[in-house]
Amino acid sequence: MIKYFVPKSLKEATEILSQNDCYILAGGTDLMVQKHRSASLLPTFEKDVLFTNEIKELDYIKVDKEGVHVGSVTKYEKMLKSAQIPDIFRKTIEQIASPGIRNMATMAGNIGNASPAGDTLVPLNVFDAYLVLSSTRGERKVLVSDYIIGVRKTIREKDEIIKEIVIPNLDLEFDYEKVGSRKAESISKVSFLGAYKLEGNIIKDFRVAFGSVSIKVVRDKEVEKKYIGLTKEEFINRKEEIVSDYSKLISPITDHRSTKEYRQKVACNLLSRFIDNIK
């Protein structure tokens, strides 16, 4: 018999998870699609289900010196309306799905689903955002980029739950682009986020991440380091080399949304345009 749990607090949730192997169900906009069979039939959950919807204490957006803390049951719509959420996240979220889905879905769900096309994963990587995972054993912090290890694969232990996502402060210039088939309701074919900081004429920070071009978000701190500290002119002059470095890192596939050649080309063009636009 499948059991259903509706904890009202984080403590209650971790106690349940310490005893039961559960699907964690938040907004359901990924899980309900994956478990759906046909009209009027129950979705097929083969394991127990823990609903996060009633854990009201995890519905928050808080700011402190570490950055912005987003409780795991916070809906996208709330993030969109909050001035505390960095603009670049709001710009990303505004292009996810549709208003109805954004009223239901959570960023923790986007992370938990670990899809190569998860749109928030791109800025979360660029910001070095991390998760706080809770269990009866305690808490641990894990970078979002380390939490996801493959398609639908994460390092979550069975007794753990995402308590919150922490987005560190980051003061950079951003360029985000999502390439899909249409404005709303489209899953990314390629997404790109470039960021930099100029101090005087020096590139003080430089970060790049791509979504949908590999099994997980592509970001490479070694490549970034190569170009930090250059003058703007030097940086721009090495555009071809930068594009070629990233071109080697991405390994897109062909699927029903797009082809690998298209994705490769568009990803490189977005990077090129980002470099051209550095002022």
């Binding site: 907004g27 906009t29 309900m32 699609v33 609903f51 109805g100 009223n103």
Partner: peptide
């Protein structure tokens, strides 16, 4: 509409409107 906000009822587990 759930609390005046559009929801896609095809993806809403009924528990989520408690």
């Amino acid at each position: 509409l759930v609390d005046d906000k559009p929801y896609n009822s095809c993806l809403t587990p009924v528990l989520n409107v408690q």
